[in-house]
Write a protein that binds this DNA or RNA. Structure first.
Lengths: 153, 153
DNA sequence: TTGCTCCTCACGTCACGTGAGGTGGC
DNA sequence: TTGCTCCTCACGTCACGTGAGGTGGC
């Protein structure tokens, strides 16, 4: 398939595909007689791995090194401890990220709850210099999440 | 306080603080006689909001507009539906992200489990052209998570 | 022939990082 | 005077986006 279909399957732009090729992350399986890049199933698998590692927050240069590590014949077995290290590191990162996102979700939900009460609030100046947390229409339990207090002031 | 202490409290670089000023996101509360920028508690609150909105993935330009929306006297109340929209959008984003991270966590754990078995595997060429999923030392239930199959090949 | 896709430069963008060369203030 | 912090250019970087001008292939 050509770059357009390939890119859309991979969920990236054609420019991104060419950029990855430029960096040595990806290589078309062939070229048409007219010079069009041609891609197959191997490339789809490969770019999915790249996307996955990008999701983990790895810079493209490090992704390149991981893909290289597994390619070098002698390095295949040697790649195992390296991969273990990278993946364990990323597992820790994912755990921290999950926690942070959980906090963010609670803050967002809390703030949205407050805002829906603001919407129905009779107070004209509910979003004045006095923060929403001072609004008499809010019960004491409806605390404004810390980070958003400033926005609501 | 000067820019150095302010930046370290905010968890960003001094360059970032100056950049935010350049974009109109932040303004020092004053200047020393020698031209040093001076910051106070108001600025700390403000940059914490900026950091939070950045965490949500908002571009700086959009953050500027949110901070502007709440600043314009008439816009204070008008800012509510806008904020609701942005926050709801971000809540959806966070939910999708949480799900993706959960999948990623399971994939990472699964792959690490496989790798630890590879480590103890007697097969010399366990990481050869044949994927780990073909290794006779792995029970059928130890499937290599899809995304990582390529790495392990 | 017409559309659509692709090609290669090459400059632009976003959010800063990183010196270069100079100055403030204890 | 010495160190440390700050100042303003201004170029660099990362991961692409976005034309410009031209070509392939049904």
């Amino acid at each position: 398939m050509q770059i357009g279909r390939f890119a859309s399957i991979a969920g990236v732009s054609a420019r991104t595909v060419r950029y990855y090729e430029e960096l040595g992350l990806l290589k078309p399986e062939g070229h048409s007689s007219g010079g069009f890049r041609l891609y197959g199933i191997e490339n789809v698998k490969r770019i999915e791995v790249i996307n996955f590692l990008r999701e983990l927050g790895l810079p493209l240069e490090e992704i390149r090194r991981i893909l290289l590590a597994k390619a070098g014949g002698a390095g295949r077995r040697a790649a195992v401890p390296f991969l273990q290290m990278v993946l364990q590191e990323k597992l820790n990162f994912v755990d921290r990220k999950l926690e942070a996102l959980g906090r963010m979700k609670r803050e967002l939900e809390g703030t949205l709850k407050i805002l829906s009460q603001c919407e129905a609030c009779g107070h004209e100046v509910v979003l004045d210099a006095i923060s929403c947390s001072g609004c008499s229409n809010l019960t004491p339990r409806d605390d404004v999440p810390g980070t958003f207090e400033v926005i609501l002031q």
